[in-house]
């Protein structure tokens, strides 16, 4: 655990000692909620909008990040499909796990995923997210992304070309439109299982169970 997250004692302006437990005091420890879909008609419309406004979080977790950049260029131009990049997890709705995921990055990925708002979608990019790929026997990279986060779409390949990425987004759109993009709710429902898996590999767990 980082030194800064350990308990510390400070002196208040009145001169009294005050114990601070940063993880408890500074982070909300509420559990995630399941947000059931509303009225089917409205939900259908909403899903159409969600599918056509995919805001991708600009967080490259591995080598595949380099494949995401060309999507914005004139050659591939993902904007025309309603795909845009967003620099903050609060506003993004799609999280592309781009390639191998080391344990250290996984911790950040979990944290970031949890900061995104429901509904949110995960795209596993490249073989590494499926079964570990060429890092399958590494002491430090995970093998199966879906044990840690609910994945909506996998895109196989090492590395997949941008075209495959676009294809993956189209698949994601279909899933969303069919109302199957309920990863966030699944995560909330099976929260304990996901947490157990995460905690199994992330050894120094110095954050609350859910990062709001």
């Amino acid at each position: 655990m980082k030194e800064d997250f350990k308990k510390r004692t400070v002196i208040t302006p009145e001169g009294k000692p005050l114990e601070i437990d940063p993880v408890k005091d500074y982070f909300s420890d509420a559990r995630p909620k399941v947000h059931k879909p509303a009225n089917p008609v409205i939900e259908k419309f909403a899903n159409w909008a969600r599918a056509n406004s995919l805001w991708v979080l600009g967080f490259g977790t591995g080598c595949g990040a380099i494949e995401m950049r060309p999507l914005m260029t004139p050659r591939f131009d993902a904007y025309r499909y309603g795909i845009q990049w967003r620099p903050t997890p609060r506003q993004a709705s799609v999280f592309v796990i781009s390639g191998y995921l080391s344990v250290k990055t996984l911790k950040r990925v979990v944290r970031t995923y949890e900061q995104m708002q429901n509904p949110k979608f995960v795209v596993g990019l490249g073989s590494c997210t499926i079964n570990g790929g060429m890092y399958w026997d590494s002491y430090n990279t995970i093998n199966r992304l879906d044990h840690y986060l609910p994945v909506d779409v996998y895109i196989a390949g090492c590395m997949p070309r941008p075209e495959s990425l676009l294809h993956g987004f189209e698949e994601l759109k279909k899933i969303i439109k069919e109302g199957r993009g309920e990863g966030a709710n699944k995560y909330a429902e099976e929260f304990d299982w996901y947490k157990a898996n995460q905690k199994k590999v992330i050894k120094d767990w110095d954050m609350p169970d859910y990062n709001w």
């Binding site: 940063p22 005091d25 500074y26 982070f27 909300s28 509420a30 979080l57 967080f59 903050t88 997890p89 609060r90 950040r108 944290r111 970031t112 900061q115 990062n211 709001w212």
Partner: peptide
């Protein structure tokens, strides 16, 4: 939420 629940990636 509490004060450190801010959107750092």
């Amino acid at each position: 939420v509490k004060q450190f629940n801010i959107g750092y990636s």
